[in-house]
Design a protein around this nucleic acid. Structure first.
Lengths: 112, 112
DNA sequence: TTTATTGTTCGCAAAAATACGAACAATAAA
DNA sequence: TTTATTGTTCGTATTTTTGCGAACAATAAA
């Protein structure tokens, strides 16, 4: 009956931003390239530029990337601070959430 | 123009499953309780049982949890193997995707 | 056998996410 | 100034997600 905690909302928020292959591909690309203009990103994705722009906006709103205007172009980049924050948030989450050995009565074997 | 890789799809898939506070709350709860019946989970969430059941189904389909029928009850538990897989997938992702120092031309300071 | 208890599934409604082309604004080049 | 390049925003359509109550199935209890 209780509401969600800020921590839970925060994890879910980051996870949601990562919950689309296009956005993962964008982050992969940003990490691999030295030049990361909008056009370069668009070139490696199978979607229209309007859609790419939308995905970039979501990543920006989640704080995971930033964009700098350079002339008529826009240079995108991973936001290092929040990236590190997200890394820690996920690492903590996976560390906290473990079925302690023997603490639950679930069967060991997997089933469907 | 290229499609997404299996790895990108896999990360996005796990992230999507984690992209709702109710599902994060469920995982937190499963990790903290010794008894994890459906009813116990429902009791700590602010949503109807039909909705809880739906979220559990999604987590199950993502492979993150499993459910065992015990009498008329159902005992849920984190799926340790896939949990470990997800942990590694995210850890790798955050390690791979870093804006190498000085490799991109983004401004250092944050802006809006 | 009848009645509770426990969860899932069904059917539906509302909201959000995804995607696109067209129109637009801003800068750079001619 | 006119034209081209670069991205964003707008409007819209489609799909997916989220949520609920009601109906249902399965086991346990009376």
């Amino acid at each position: 009956m209780k509401e969600y905690t800020d921590k839970q909302a925060s994890i879910a928020h980051f996870a949601k931003a990562l919950g689309h292959p296009a956005r993962i591909a964008i982050l992969h690309f940003l990490a691999s390239q030295e030049t990361c203009f909008f056009g370069d990103i668009h070139d490696v994705l199978p979607i229209a530029k309007a859609t790419v722009s939308q995905h970039l906006k979501e990543l920006k709103e989640a704080g995971l990337i930033q964009g700098d205007i350079e002339g008529p172009k826009v240079r995108y980049c991973i936001n290092k601070e929040n990236w590190e924050l997200a890394r820690v948030v996920f690492a903590d989450f996976f560390n906290d959430c473990v079925c302690k050995k023997g603490s639950c009565g679930c069967r060991e074997e997997q089933h469907d």
